[in-house]
Design a protein around this nucleic acid. Structure first.
Lengths: 236, 236
DNA sequence: TGCATATTCTTTGTCGACAAGAATTACACA
DNA sequence: TGTGTAATTCTTGTCGACAAAGAATATGCA
């Protein structure tokens, strides 16, 4: 046969540093797509069994997710998916709008050919998702589109905050959109195109104006959806 | 420091969840005060011996520090204190200036009585540090002062980015200031007072103007300290 | 000597196990 | 039946140990 050395019982079957990243990426997606509901508990041993690994890499992934505010940890007690704060959304909208503007403006200023390729690619993916009426894909590709613009702006500080805001936004949108069947998605595609044109033309003023309008549009839409949902509830 | 070991076997001598926080806080301060030089390697086992604990809590603290960008980790290889990037500081200055402006403006808008108390307290600490000519204390209390203003603005998204920028700024300043003996510190005290007055008066426009000038002042000072090279103009 | 390869060493990533808190249940007692 | 307390369970925090991946060093051969 073979095997001059008898192997230990456990067969690794995966590369050394990959466990943490795998768990982190998967949990992050599940949280952002609301597969894991906000507030739902997270059990380390359960995850360890699910991924067939020890609790140690699971734990590290959770620590990183907690660092990004995607999960909340109570010392010596449970850990759970971070809740969405519906009562004070203003700070979120403020930050989101400002980051839309700043990153788009910086992109118009600092873009390079490779950036434009990436932006066009993301826009194509978003347009495809719109055409396919795939709400989940729309949300994800829209975030990726704006992240690509931010990358072209080349400011890592803004980018990290913007990424976090876009993540948070994915959760909000996922909550309200079961299906897109109105005219808005196509309008977003058009607005994206206009923003791309401003970036290509290096027109920072136009980029700012368009991104501001785009952001306000999105904020308005989310607010409209929320108000409609809260109508069932008792007045706050 | 060490308590007497009266009991025979292993004596924990410390509370359960405190290990990680202790190591995290201490390492963070040492990094920000440049006790640990940028680029210097970090050895897990050495830290474990130093704090008399296992590698596990050390590791968790390092993961969190890596999440904030204070240390860099090469997979399967060494981990070290994050370097300061002197070549492209523009993104840092851009972000710092914008956050100065936004947080101060929001503070003028949303401040409450308790906030003003905290701001005044921090300003007093800063003034005391200036009077005492304590450069290290000046740097730390200055950052705390602006963090207090940001708290009054009540936008956690801006606050987290701003905290990170102020941390980064602490490292830069610590690098260049061995001693303060020029007129600038007192000028900072005066500018802080003016900003406080604008916040008290709820004058957002004035707060924006003052914070912008303050930020540009600081940026100019850092630039002057660095090699006489001028950075590219960034107009937002 | 110079270079390629094998061996050792160092540091990180992962594991299974155990103990401490907190939550939950069981229980005694009025 | 209700309540305060003790035992149990359940989850997390910590530990020591081992294996894997690089780096450093030694070895063999032209």
């Amino acid at each position: 046969m073979k095997a001059p050395k008898t192997k230990p019982a456990a067969v690794p079957e995966r590369k050394r540093g990959s466990g943490v990243k795998f768990v982190y990426d998967l949990l992050r997606d599940e949280i952002l797509d609301l597969v894991l509901a906000p507030g739902s508990p997270i059990d380390e041993v359960q995850l360890a069994e699910r991924f067939s690994m020890s609790r140690t890499p699971i734990r590290e992934a959770l620590v990183r997710l907690a660092g990004e505010g995607l999960i909340d940890t109570l010392p010596n007690r449970s850990t759970m998916v971070a809740n969405l704060d519906f009562l004070n959304m203003s700070p979120f909208f403020d930050a989101l709008t400002l980051m839309y503007r700043v990153t788009t403006q910086l992109a118009a200023q600092n873009r390079r050919p490779a950036d434009l390729e990436a932006i066009h690619a993301r826009q194509a993916e978003f347009a495809a998702a719109v055409k396919a009426q795939d709400a989940l894909a729309m949300i994800a590709t829209n975030a990726a589109f704006h992240a690509a613009i931010a990358d072209a702006g080349r400011n890592p500080y803004f980018n990290s905050l913007f990424s976090r805001l876009l993540d948070e936004g994915r959760r909000f949108l996922r909550l309200y959109y079961q299906s897109y069947d109105d005219r808005l998605p196509q309008q977003f595609v058009d607005e994206h195109e206009a923003m791309i044109a401003a970036i290509v033309a290096r027109d920072t003023a136009l980029a700012d104006r368009l991104s501001k309008a785009h952001a306000e549009q999105i904020v308005q839409q989310i607010q409209k959806l929320m108000i409609g949902d809260e109508r069932l509830d008792v007045t706050l």
